[in-house]
């Protein structure tokens, strides 16, 4: 096995240069924006730099609606093309505004329908958080049209994107009494006056984990005529530290309902593994060094430096004898 190998590629370097160029451009643009905003005078160089950036950048926005345990949220993903590659938008300074409207009744000019705004993070994602009373206000609604708008950003073009989702509900039941433990999830949608089961929905059963959902049950899950999907839980999977297991049902990126998700904590007797206590080791921090090492080095240091101190005392003796007649 070759242990010590390193790699640098030309491409790597090019890429960095590109990003630097982009950032430099961005710098100029941002500077000019702030210039205007604060109406301050700066040296000519800046404004000249700023003039270079006349056309704004285009980007794509993807909107997705997520309903997690009855709480609705909307996510935006922004991407753009850069040298023929799709990369996420990471330097958007302006917020994206989100409006709620059925059939374009929103009005950005006076703020009608504005329910949230979000800033994009470095991965090009933004999550809109809704007001606390959102559910109450929209309790009568069974179809939601979300419109996300970016307006008058200094760097990017204006973009408007809408997503419409219909009302649907998820429930999950757990049966842990037998030696075989199962879970059943049910998907219903609003049709006319009431909720009715959805057939052939790709409803996945899974266990919530640190980063993602670990699927269990059928390989290609599909709801039956009652909107149900059932699955057997793996019996050896470790649960949460508090003696529960978080089971979940997920309908992912459905064209009518968006993403639906429901979770439920059920009692579970397999605890997650506990990290080994390493105690005093060679790779601990200084205050946690192996005792034998600490003691032996202290002994050695004491002996040697004790002798040195004695020798320095001897020097003072020399001086003392020098003063004696």
């Amino acid at each position: 096995m070759i242990l010590f190998t390193h790699i640098y590629t030309k491409e790597m370097k090019n890429n960095q240069q590109n990003s630097i160029v982009i950032i430099t451009r961005f710098k100029a643009i941002l500077a000019s924006l702030l210039l205007g905003a604060f109406a301050l005078s700066f040296n000519v160089a800046v404004s000249q730099e700023a003039k270079k950036a006349t056309s704004k950048l285009a980007f794509k926005m993807r909107l997705s609606s997520i309903l997690t345990n009855g709480i609705r949220s909307v996510k935006a993903n922004l991407s753009k093309m850069e040298d023929g590659k799709t990369v996420s938008v990471e330097n958007l300074a302006s917020p994206i505004r989100l409006y709620l409207s059925e059939v374009k009744k929103y009005d950005p000019s006076n703020g009608t329908g504005l329910i949230s705004k979000a800033y994009i993070n470095r991965e090009g994602e933004g999550e809109f958080e809704f007001p606390d009373n959102f559910n109450k206000v929209t309790s009568g609604m069974h179809e939601f049209t979300f419109i996300a708008k970016l307006e008058s950003d200094s760097l990017y073009q204006d973009v408007e994107k809408e997503v419409t989702v219909s009302d649907a509900k998820l429930t999950i039941e757990y049966n842990g009494k037998d030696s075989i433990k199962t879970a059943t999830a049910c998907l219903v949608e609003w049709k006319g006056k009431e909720y009715v089961p959805v057939k052939e929905g790709e409803l996945k059963l899974c266990i919530k984990r640190a980063f993602n959902f670990l699927p269990f049950g059928p390989n290609a899950p599909s709801t039956d005529e009652n909107g149900n999907v059932s699955g057997e839980l793996p019996l050896d999977v470790p649960g949460n530290a508090n003696g529960t297991l978080t089971i979940a049902a997920r309908l992912e990126d459905h064209e009518t309902f968006g993403t639906l998700e429901i979770t439920k904590d059920v009692p579970w007797n397999i605890l997650p593994k506990v990290n080994k206590e390493h105690g005093r080791t060679l790779w601990s921090q200084g205050d946690n060094a192996p005792l034998l090492l600490v003691i032996s080095s202290l002994v050695i240091i004491t002996v040697i430096w004790g002798t040195i101190i004695y020798l320095i005392y001897l020097l003072t003796r020399v001086k003392k004898f020098g003063k004696m007649p």
């Binding site: 709620l100 059925e102 009608t112 705004k117 800033y119 007001p131 206000v137």
Partner: peptide, 25 residues
Amino acid sequence: KDAGKKVKVMTTDGKVIEVDDAHCK
């Protein structure tokens, strides 16, 4: 522009109601 402002939401039955301005997360 936005601070402390109430925003209007239109409900299904055509009523326009006001909710607190959402803040960035």
